[in-house]
Every structure is written in C-alpha cells, then in structure tokens.
C-alpha cells in the first residue's frame, strides 16, 4: 500500500501437517497456545503483521499460515509468491516431519526463488523423549542443501520459548539482506494492489 511507509516482508510457514505451524502463528499473533488442534481459533485469519526495530531501522514482518492446505499436499503456488522469507518447520520429536523437509524446500526454491530460508525445530519442550531430531541432524541438513538455510532455531509453542527470539532474528536477517534490494525494487515494477475505490486518498500505485 502506498500509505504504509515501512515495507512489509512476507514470511511463510512451511512443513508437514501437525508440526505446529498454526501454533507458531498463534504465538506470533496473540501469544497464546491451545493444546488440541483447534482450527476454530484461527478461522478467517489470513496473515498478521508485526513491527520490529533492528538497529534503528523499522521492519514489518507479515507472517502467513497455510490454512491447513498442506494436509493433503494441496498448497497453492500463490502461497509462495512474493515471499521474502520461508520458515521450514518440523517437530523435534518427529523425525519423519524432518526428513520430508527437502520436498518443502524444493517448493520454496521453485515458487519463491528469492526467499531467505530458515529452519525451525518446534516442540523443544518434548526434548529428551525419543525419537529425536538432533542438532547434528539439523547441521547435516543445512550442509546438504548447500547453505540455502540462513539460520536454524528451536522453539516451543507450548512454553513460548524461543519464539520471539526467532522472529526478531529473522527480522534482522531480512533488514541486512534487503538494504540494497529494497532500493532496487522501488524502481523495478509498477504493479499494484487493488484498493477499495472510496478511501483512496492518494494514487494507490506501489511504484
């Protein structure tokens, strides 16, 4: 929007059904947690903006959830479009959810080539129980995908541990990588979002 001066950075959550993507989303939006999978509580919620200050520079992260479309592998390619960052989420107590991430990674590099990619092991409160995905496994994964992964995190949506830190760190990464790119982008394209006609106070062009 022309009226928003701080650039929004679209951040998407990717990963298997049940690893805690919507829980991360709920922590991010309302800082709450519900145990059972309760779609009701995020029904109609599309994405959520939160502002971060990184070394005096304002940045707005816009977090998007899948809406449950991954359940039968039916995520739209549009979901990835315009994403600046993608968080690959798996459950630390579920190795299968970790090993399948290469497929999700492929989707990200196909549909959102420019997105920075982050790896997030969720459910760290269950650490110590087996089976487990170890730090070693995570490092190994990062090496295998040729350092496409910008950073790795461990979070627990149940306790809230590591969640805020992760998003703050992602904001930092985006500010650093975007410094030059944002300036390039501003002269790149003259495409725009459609806005309702009545409350247009200035030209609604993104250029």
């Amino acid at each position: 929007m022309a009226s928003v001066k701080i650039p929004e950075q679209k951040v998407i959550l990717c990963g298997e059904y049940g690893v805690g993507k919507s829980s991360l989303f709920r922590r991010y939006t309302t800082n709450t947690f519900v145990t059972a999978t309760d779609r009701q509580s995020t029904l109609g919620l599309d994405h959520f903006d939160r502002q971060y200050n990184v070394g005096g520079k304002e940045i707005r992260l816009q977090l998007w959830d899948t809406g449950g479309m991954e359940r039968v592998a039916s995520i739209t390619s549009s979901y990835y479009k315009f994403a600046e960052a993608a968080i690959l989420v798996f459950s630390l107590d579920n190795p299968a959810s970790f090993h399948v991430l290469s497929q999700h990674l492929l989707d990200i590099v196909t549909y959102a080539e420019n997105a920075k990619i982050f790896l997030c092991g969720n459910k760290s409160d269950l650490e110590g129980q087996s089976p487990q995905v170890t730090e070693n496994d995570m490092e190994h994964f990062c090496e295998q995908c040729h350092n496409l992964i910008s950073a790795t995190y461990k979070t627990s949506c149940k306790t809230g541990q590591g969640v805020d830190e992760m998003f703050a760190d992602i904001a930092q990464h985006l500010v650093e990588s975007n410094r030059s790119r944002l300036e390039l982008q501003s002269m790149d394209t003259e495409s725009f979002k459609i806005t309702p006609p009545d409350d247009v106070t200035e030209p609604s062009c993104l250029c």
Binding site: G44, L45, D46, G68, M69, V72, S74, S78
Partner: peptide, 28 residues
C-alpha cells in the same frame, strides 16, 4: 487489469480464502 503470474492466481486466491475459513482441499 491483469494479475502478475497469470490468471491462474485468481482461483488460487479464492481457494486460500476458502481454506482459511475451514474449507478442506484435495487435489489429484
């Protein structure tokens, strides 16, 4: 007007709307 990435983005946008309001999707 014409959408970036083609007209195929339009059905996908409405599909996401349906999904975030609880719609279940199955392709293939």
């Amino acid at each position: 007007l014409y959408p970036m990435y083609g007209l195929g983005e339009l059905p996908q946008g409405f599909a996401r709307l349906s999904a975030i309001y609880g719609g279940t999707y199955m392709l293939d």
